[in-house]
């Protein structure tokens, strides 16, 4: 790969550096895997150099071109990992509970930290949660599940292509609906929030 002219090099490196900074910042915000992000940025760099070698003008490589190259590189990486059936993209992250995992006491009961007023094992509690979620309206259910998965309202709004106000409404009404359903199933809240 022969080096492009210096002015092209400088312009491209400046654009790449700016984009890399934005990607890394967004990666922190979205909890994306840093090593994978570095891999994508490297691939973007290679694609842009190749484009210039093919005769693309540096000034015809605007932000939208960098964007498309990054999206394309990311899709290729995802497809490649799926094909290889590798453990994709830090898969273990969600499997580690965000909070300290509740442990069953000697009687097999959910500890008081779960706020239940009856003895019920974890599997039963999960089954009730599953049933309660299944009974909800789809938009509320998805919003609530994204919230419970740790996404912020701004992220939920973006993923659901709605305003932040609507996302907030869906989450809050959805949580109230979910609690009502769990209560009616016997998994009673005990005023913990």
């Amino acid at each position: 790969m022969s080096p492009p002219p210096d002015d092209v090099s400088v312009a491209l490196e400046r654009l790449l550096a700016r984009y890399a900074g934005l990607v890394r910042s967004a990666a922190r915000s979205h909890r994306a895997d840093e090593a994978t992000v570095d891999e994508i940025l490297q691939e973007v760099r290679i694609r842009l150099w190749r484009a210039i070698e093919r005769g693309e003008k540096a000034d015809a490589l605007p932000a939208s071109y960098v964007y498309r190259a990054a999206v394309s590189a990311t899709l290729d990486l995802i497809r490649g990992r799926r094909r290889k059936r590798e453990v994709p993209l830090e898969e273990s992250r969600l499997e580690e509970p965000r909070l300290e995992e509740p442990r069953l006491d000697d009687a097999g009961a959910i500890p008081a930290s779960l706020g239940t007023d009856r003895t019920v094992d974890e599997e039963a509690a999960m089954e009730l949660l599953d049933q309660a979620l299944a009974g909800m309206v789809a938009t509320r259910r998805v919003a609530v599940r994204l919230h419970l998965a740790g996404y912020h309202l701004r992220e939920i709004a973006a993923m659901m292509d709605s305003s932040e106000a609507r996302a907030r409404n869906l989450v809050y009404r959805g949580l109230a609906d979910l609690r009502t359903r769990l209560t009616s199933m016997g998994l009673n809240p005990r005023g913990r929030g």
Partner: peptide, 15 residues
């Protein structure tokens, strides 16, 4: 049941 409790249950359900 507060959000943290629901999150814990939900995480376990997902896993």
């Amino acid at each position: 049941m507060n959000d943290d409790t629901l999150r814990t249950l939900h995480d376990q359900l997902v896993a």
